[in-house]
Amino acid sequence: MKVRNLHEDEKPPIELLLEADPSRKLVVEYVQRGDCRVAESDGNTIGVYVLLPTRPGTVELVNIAIAESHRGKGLGKQLVMDAIQVAKSRGFQTMELGTGNSSVDQLALYQKCGFRMVSVEADFFIRHYEEEIYENGIQCRDMIRLSLEL
């Protein structure tokens, strides 16, 4: 797997990003403002993430997605670690991210990568998304915020 910056004239893999965040409006907005990196294997895009500076010294991992056919192979962890390295190399001191209360596997992954839970934004997904979201048989209601000191 090779991870690279999205080229200026290249379209981001919106459909893959939508697998991690179902709001096309939000995805398009933060892709335009953030730094999109794609993971490739044999010339095919198999993963993507977006980093978005939020405050001085702080960057947020706003989206990370792996193509369904490549999940369960440790690629998500590789992408998170790549994002951490990129953020460090760009001088950020803190990386933040948010995920749904129902995203059980993602919560485990982020903690394995060193992130710690710092807060909960109650009813975030109820207020900001038109349709109900369910994962693992759980309604996604709250945003769990995590942080990592770089």
Rank of each mutant, 00 (worst) to 15 (best):
G72L: 05
K88P: 00
A83Q: 02
S89G: 14
G76D: 04
K77I: 10
I84H: 00
R90C: 14
D82E: 07
N63T: 06
I64D: 01
K88Q: 11
R71A: 12
G76Y: 01
V62H: 01
G72M: 06
I64P: 04
D82F: 07
I84M: 03
G76L: 00
A87V: 13
A65P: 01
V80F: 01
I64T: 10
L75T: 11
A83M: 05
K88L: 06
R71H: 10
Q78P: 00
A87E: 08
G72K: 05
R90A: 15
K77H: 09
Q78T: 11
L75Q: 08
V80M: 05
V62G: 02
V86A: 13
G74S: 05
K77F: 07
H70W: 12
K77T: 15
L79H: 02
G72S: 07
R90P: 05
S69H: 07
M81E: 12
S69A: 15
V80H: 03
G74W: 03
M81P: 00
N63E: 01
H70E: 15
I64F: 07
G72E: 09
I64V: 14
I84E: 01
V62F: 04
N63K: 00
E68D: 13
K88R: 15
K73Y: 09
G91P: 11
G91D: 08
M81H: 05
E68K: 12
K73Q: 15
G74F: 01
Q78R: 11
G91Q: 06
